[in-house]
Design a protein around this nucleic acid. Structure first.
Length: 578
RNA sequence: UGACCGAUGGUGUAAUGGUAGCACUGCAGAUUUUGGUUCUGCCUGUCCAGGUUCGAAUCCUGGUCGGUCAACCA
């Protein structure tokens, strides 16, 4: 599946553009910016990228591709207090992994510090900016509130020369952190708080990850972002909703500076059910050890999803499916799961693995005479052909595939019943052996030699087909069964006095020992497989040849479990009042 | 008690004054050597009240509900 080949994309192109596409289409029609489309993804290198960022990346870059434009990667690195190269590297890796190539258009806001400084001087000369000696608390105090206008700074009417001199000395390092700031001179009575003489520069005597000690004054987001867009010729500067109130300021700087007019467009950020998305909360989960790092497969980070077994294609498909609008949304995580299943169904090699073994002895099968049967590599890709799988007298099947006293809708193995062993024979359960606790320990079955797959008798109808692994050929592996990180679709829905972590799912990770036989020789980290009837799995990055580790990406859709669940719920679990 | 933004099935998203469509979820059925995939069918929706119009999800007015904004964060 290539990027422009997403299912559903074509019908979508015929009609129904999202609101941003409509704006772009209109801008192209009217010849704005010469009909050019140029977007950017502007992360701050202070954390890891998550699925919400993926939405933004796919949106920004997808739009550029769709309209034959260009896209940049630009690090918004204007705050040396929180930013680090480590994050720059992980972000680049994640964007590249998603399948996007920014070619030579990798930029940093810090590339523009010099021209930004110059432009600030220009604003001072226009009497549109001034140096203010108030401290942070005073500025905040004087800014007023959303319902009450602010008051003007006593330093607001300094002369141009005095401002120029002070600003130069700020840069020269003559003042302490926080001693003075440069402010835009706009309107302290504006109903928009961001127009009340916002800070443009602050003094921070800290080394910057790229510019080192060259600077001790740093531009704020509002002063740096729009100008960076303008410098790069960004036509459509797409950001999230909370920046909507910044737009008048974004446009004010561009107008006063008389530079290329990039246009800011806001969309609603992604929220996903059963997870949290804020960097702060994600960081908390990592720091407090609720997960094992940023790339823990349960995390909604790009690196976590990658390690979980998600493919770039599945994430791009997902981004395309969720759409773009301005209203707040919560996407059902089931759509994300659907997206990987759809991709992996076509790609993943099928393999049989038993995760919860029950030993079966086929009493009429010769001992010490294993044979090989043919297994399909991927029914969605018949051209891939078949693979040999060893079969023998003693095998493991899944505990869940046997019930001593089955309900009517249970089609699998039970005393006296027949099932088909996939790719092999039909067997019949003759005897149930139990341990001292009365638990089922082993099954004795007989097989029908005439039902070997491929033979005419094999077409006999049986109610179900189960997977298996030959005991003598079985290789033990570690299997990590992941589930949703939170129990509540909205982790923020909490009782008084508790926080979102009280909604953590205690069973989000279960580690079991499973058995595989053949088909996974030479598998490398992140290789993906379907364990037939069970789910999609990928080789973990910590997997070694001695201890192979498989991560469950997602289960297969499962009508039986669903049926079982709804029925158990009714009989065994008392309803909690609602 | 301000300004700005938003409101379409359970969840998302289209329809831009002319048949409310698509996807996910759920349910039912067909096919199936994966209770997978595929296919078919079904359930469920325009926040409320007025107005304009032959005709309103769409335009207007008022309300309701939700979100954003008072970092020298981005």
């Amino acid at each position: 599946m290539t990027r422009n080949d997403l299912p559903g994309k074509e019908e979508k192109d015929v009609r129904s553009l999202n609101f941003i596409e409509q704006i772009i289409t209109e801008d192209i029609r009217t010849g704005k910016a010469g009909g050019r489309v140029h977007t950017r993804f502007p992360p701050e290198p202070n954390g890891y990228l998550h699925i919400g960022h993926a939405k933004s990346i796919c949106l920004n870059y997808g739009l550029a591709e769709k309209y034959n434009g260009l896209y940049n990667l630009r690090f918004d690195d204007t705050n040396p207090l929180t930013e680090e190269v480590e994050y720059v590297e992980s972000i680049k890796e994640d964007v590249r992994w998603l399948g996007y190539d920014w070619e030579d258009r990798l930029y940093y806001a810090s590339d523009y510090f010099e021209i930004l400084y110059e432009w600030a001087g220009k604003l001072i000369k226009k009497e549109k900016a001034y140096v203010c000696d108030l401290n942070a608390a005073q500025i905040s105090e004087q800014r007023g509130t959303p319902t009450r206008p602010g008051i003007e700074s006593p330093y607001r009417n300094r002369t141009i020369d005095e401002n120029l001199d002070l600003f130069r000395r700020m840069r020269n390092g003559e003042f302490r952190d926080g001693q003075r700031v440069l402010r835009a001179k706009i309107d302290m009575a504006s109903p928009n708080m961001h127009m009340r003489d916002p800070v443009m520069y602050r003094i921070i005597h800290v080394a910057h990850h790229r510019t080192g000690h060259d600077w001790c004054i740093y531009p704020t987001y509002d002063y740096a972002h729009g100008q960076s867009d303008s410098i790069e010729g960004i036509t459509h500067s797409i950001c999230t909703l909370e920046f909507e109130v910044h737009r008048p300021l974004y446009e004010w700087f561009i107008r006063e500076l008389d530079i290329f007019p990039s246009r800011q467009i806001e969309f609603a950020r992604l929220n996903l059910s059963y997870t949290v998305m804020s960097k702060r909360k994600l960081l908390q989960l990592v720091k407090e050890g609720h997960v094992n790092g940023w790339d823990d497969p349960r995390m909604p980070t790009i690196s976590g999803l990658r390690r979980r077994g998600y493919t770039p294609e599945s994430i791009r498909y997902f981004s395309d499916r969720i759409g773009v609008a301005k209203r707040n949304n919560v996407i059902d995580v089931a759509l994300l799961e659907h997206s990987v299943r759809e991709d992996l169904n076509v790609k993943a090699t099928r393999v049989m693995a038993v995760l919860n073994p029950l030993k079966v002895v086929i009493t009429n099968y010769p001992a010490g005479e294993p044979e090989e049967v043919d297994a399909v590599i991927n029914p969605e890709q018949p051209e891939l052909g078949k693979r040999k799988v060893p079969f023998s007298r003693e095998i493991f099947i899944e505990k869940d595939d046997f019930m001593e006293d089955p309900p009517r809708k249970f089609f699998r193995l039970a005393p006296g019943r027949e099932v088909r062993l996939k790719y092999a024979y039909i067997i019949k359960c003759e005897k149930v052996l139990k341990d001292e606790n009365g638990k089922v320990a082993e099954l004795h079955c007989t097989y029908d030699p005439a039902t070997r797959s491929g033979m005419p008798e094999a077409n006999r109808k049986v109610k179900s087909t189960i997977h298996w692994v030959s005991a003598q050929h079985a290789r033990e592996v570690e299997v990590r069964l992941f589930d949703r990180l939170f129990l509540n679709p909205d982790p923020e829905e909490i009782e008084e006095g508790k926080d979102f972590k009280s909604n953590l799912n205690p069973d989000s990770l279960k580690i079991v020992r499973g058995f595989i036989s053949s088909g996974m020789e030479g598998a490398r980290p992140l290789d993906k497989f379907q364990f037939e009837r069970t789910g999609y799995f990928c080789v973990d990055t910590e997997s070694t040849s001695r201890n192979m580790i498989l991560n469950r990406t997602v289960t297969l859709r499962d009508a039986w479990t669903r049926y079982e669940k709804t029925n158990n719920t009714k009989s065994t679990r008392p309803k909690t009042g609602k």
